[in-house]
Design a protein around this nucleic acid. Sequence first.
DNA 1: GGTAATGTCTATAGTTACTATAGGGTCAAG
DNA 2: CTTGACCCTATAGTAACTATAGACATTACC
Lengths: 145, 145
Amino acid sequence: MKIGELAKRTGCRVVTVRYYEKEGLLAKPERTEGNYRLYGQDDLERLEFIMHCREHGMKPAEIRELLLFRDNPRRDCTWVSDLISAHIADVDERIASLKHLREHLEQLRGRCGGEQSGEVCGIIRSLDDRTCCASCGRHEISQQL
Amino acid sequence: MKIGELAKRTGCRVVTVRYYEKEGLLAKPERTEGNYRLYGQDDLERLEFIMHCREHGMKPAEIRELLLFRDNPRRDCTWVSDLISAHIADVDERIASLKHLREHLEQLRGRCGGEQSGEVCGIIRSLDDRTCCASCGRHEISQQL
DNA sequence: GGTAATGTCTATAGTTACTATAGGGTCAAG
DNA sequence: CTTGACCCTATAGTAACTATAGACATTACC
């Protein structure tokens, strides 16, 4: 099949397929006379695997490791299970962090005095003061909370 | 104070301060004879505000809006409260999505047959098959789950 | 006063995991 | 034989910074 069909069948975008090839997650496929990529069942399955990993929130580095194992399965797969566990721990941490953040936001929202208060909105005033965050050890500042 | 002290006192990196200036979140400060940036109390407070917003997981676009309000407070601050509410809803969604993901990962981990099974690790086999994700409407695939 | 360390300056490129664009070639249908 | 859908490569753009290179300013120490 050509790249378009592969993309449609996996839910991956065409450009992303090519990107994965460049990154080495997918092998360089055969080409037609007209230089079109030609994929087979194996490629389809490999990409399905990759997409499934992505659906589980894994990063390309993790996916790459899992693919290595898939290409060359060894008896001892303890580390596969460990990798998943580490990933779960990571997810747990993000959940905890978001829950904490949520509480803070809730508090913050409660500070708004409403229109009638005459003063500057309490939310804005609260944002001037960081002691609330300092007191709880300060939130992790990350670009992808 | 010079940029280094401002950075230290706010917990923001020096480069990030300059970045915020370029992005218009911070005003262009005075300069010394030697062309060093010079900041005052106002700048410090403004950056504290920004950092506090960041600690609350807000994106620069949201921060920019809040700064506009802070610069020019109006009587009606309903939308400030609305902005926070929208942000909370966003956080809630991310929490829900992560919890769902977590369950899937837990299931996945349970598929490992252990070393003695002789077969290819059940986790790897499970990742070949995406029906589990298809059945739950499929996880959102995003780069920043 | 000399010099070494530190702090600051600008401009540009790199990061992740893609996505978008430009400019062109290939193929099947009407 | 041309229209449109698909495909190709290469390059640049995205967010929100971070890192690097190469140069000037200031401070500390002897």
